[in-house]
Design a binder for these strands. Structure first.
Lengths: 364, 364
DNA sequence: TGAGCGGTAGTAAGCGCTTACTGCGCCGCG
DNA sequence: CGCGGCGCAGTAAGCGCTTACTACCGCTCA
């Protein structure tokens, strides 16, 4: 039904091999012949059969991206940046991408992560970018690590973006050049935020954290704790009481978490949220409780998503260069940027102080 | 290198045809044989070669989604909903997706839309969902329509989601059952919004519109105009003067547009934004000009993205059921929902009144 | 008892492309 | 004048899977 290479070849009066060579461009073909072929391609409106070509060449033009939730701008921005790198991979004028991005929503579930990995492997994806924090379940992370190692060993480029490097401890060592990491400094960011609040004079700092089983959550909490512990006012029991775990990185988690927090520790004068989205829920719950932000309670987010600058009030947060991280991950996945020694790139962060944080009221 | 069907067949002591049949599941295989095969698959960790299977079966498991900007939650939500429908397409327990979504960022450019269409066609995608408004350039839309018609005729299911049905006027008639549309009522929504402002007493209603060449922009403007014209206070010159076109559906477009608007028509008491994101920019510009929202100027958005309820102030807007639209589009693309007569599904909308709109001050 | 049939499984012919290998014509050099 | 080499282009062997067709077995039914 569809036009095939052979049709084009016949139309141009050459062999199908020649057509293939003209199209792939990695073999010398005389100018005249080349033009004849290209004209035939035009005239017949020939479109390569991707599967056939992938089968014969044993490689495909697909790049997989695993995200927790594509509706969340955090992942959207990263995915968009990764895709941006696929452009300019064209062969002709302008940014005509050659590779296609397959975006898979894992919903944060390790099982689905594994499932999608299989699906991508089935498609013989050239590279796979895994975004978002990992789940801490040792069984799953071992299974995942094993899978990734095997994929990497099989030639699939694997890039972990925004999650810590593989650390199952067991299994053959790292696969250099094929299993890369672009990590955020979640600890450092959270620490900076907590130090900011401490410097403002806050002593009762609540923390509405993300799901307990995620590495991201743990790292941010660790940074928070580190800042607390380094401060004269440190009280482990208080810190414990002021930390609540939410059900996810959603607005509702912030809302619910804050209600719990306010009930448990009404003396709270500042709340650190798992991320900006959660912070919105935190703000809503505080306002509902009749508390003003930042006069009565300060609030800080994490990530600095675009909406944070327009929230009410504008959100103090830690800016994570998602765009840059995604682009980096994309380049590593495509192999257009040499991997750093050790395979791990750590992306910086920046404290962004806006209107949602202020000194506590006198006596706070 | 990789394990093949033949390997599995040998291991299980059957022919490769049998293995294929067990895995595809669309042919009877005796229980004992099936188990033997499945065990072999497990033991050898066999993963189907997607390209090979797509080549032989002349169809792939890929579903393409074209979006303007994956970092924009508007598209993220739709994409996420479409993907949601791919799950549950599994064969075993739980939602194990069979199909994979390929998300392509077109950046709103018609050329790239065409390019990605080619790429997806090359991959022999089973279906393609195009989201977001179309560009009004007659040349491009004719080219696009022709392409889509041809793809649809070739068996690729095409679903337009959030954009008007194809209307090039020329070219063979519609391809029933293969070229579907899920449209938003942009006119109706904008009309409702303007009526809301008129009812509040506003007479100087500015409109910071999206890019002039997009259908979405035109439709929303038309709804706005319709409401205006139906009102006793209608003044074409004023309406004209109060409408500014922005450079895109971004915050900065709202900011810039509002500055132009305030300069051109300082008497403005209400501003309608192209969408919620633009509305954020509008608010920023107004605030910068020393105007309070909604006391001095009312602002309304469009779409009701998640952040709108948390903006400062909370945004009056028109809720578009993106989730529902995406899910619908996904089902139509997969063929799991029968297409409506005529192929066009129109999704409703809902006026959401929040804190950013209020009556104008006396004399406004 | 034998033809016929339903239920399984094997055989093998591609699907459309890539690429190693071969072939051919022409030039330069000995 | 002959031969090696070079630059193109053709030949054909797969890549791993699906599936039409065929084969076989064991029953049922006349």
């Amino acid at each position: 039904m569809a036009v095939t290479l052979a049709d084009v070849a016949a139309h141009a009066g050459v062999s199908s091999a020649t057509v293939s060579r003209v199209l792939s461009g990695n073999y010398p073909v005389a100018g005249a012949t080349r033009n004849r072929v290209l004209r035939a391609v035009e005239e017949l409106e020939y479109v390569v059969n991707g599967p056939a070509s992938a089968l014969a060449a044993a490689s495909s033009d697909l790049l997989g991206i695993l995200v927790n939730d594509i509706a969340d701008p955090f992942f959207g921005i990263i995915a968009s940046a990764v895709q941006g790198e696929l452009e300019g991979q064209g062969q002709g004028e302008g940014p005509v991408p050659r590779k296609l991005a397959v975006v898979c929503n894992t919903g944060g579930s390790p099982e689905r992560e594994l499932t999608y990995l299989t699906l991508l492997q089935r498609q013989r994806a050239a590279a796979i970018v895994l975004t978002g924090g990992a789940v801490e379940d040792p069984e799953h992370s071992a299974a995942l690590a094993a899978r990734l190692r095997r994929l990497a060993a099989g030639g699939t480029r694997i890039v972990l973006c925004g999650r810590p490097p593989l650390s199952d401890g067991q299994g053959g060592g790292p696969v250099p050049g094929a299993l890369l990491t672009v990590a955020f400094d979640n600890r450092g960011g959270a620490r900076a935020l907590t130090e900011h609040l401490l410097a403002l004079g806050h002593r009762h700092i609540g923390y509405v954290a993300g799901p307990a089983e995620r590495t991201t959550t743990r790292h941010r909490l660790e940074g928070h704790s580190a800042a607390l512990e380094a401060h004269e006012s440190f009280d482990p029991a208080r810190a414990e009481r002021l930390t609540v775990h939410g059900g996810g990185y959603h607005r509702s988690a912030g809302y619910e978490g804050t209600r719990v927090l306010l009930h448990r520790a009404p003396e709270t004068t500042a709340v650190l949220a798992a991320n900006d989205t959660v912070a919105l829920g935190v703000c809503a719950a505080l306002r509902e409780a009749g508390l003003r932000i930042p006069e009565d309670v300060s609030v800080a987010g994490f990530d600095d998503l675009p909406f944070s600058a327009d929230a009410s009030p504008t959100l103090t947060t830690v800016r994570l260069p998602l765009q840059e991280a995604g682009a980096r991950a994309g380049r590593l996945a495509l192999g257009t940027q040499p991997p750093p020694r050790g395979g791990v790139t750590t992306i910086g962060h920046e404290l962004v102080v806006r209107a949602s944080t202020a000194p506590p009221r006198a006596g706070g």
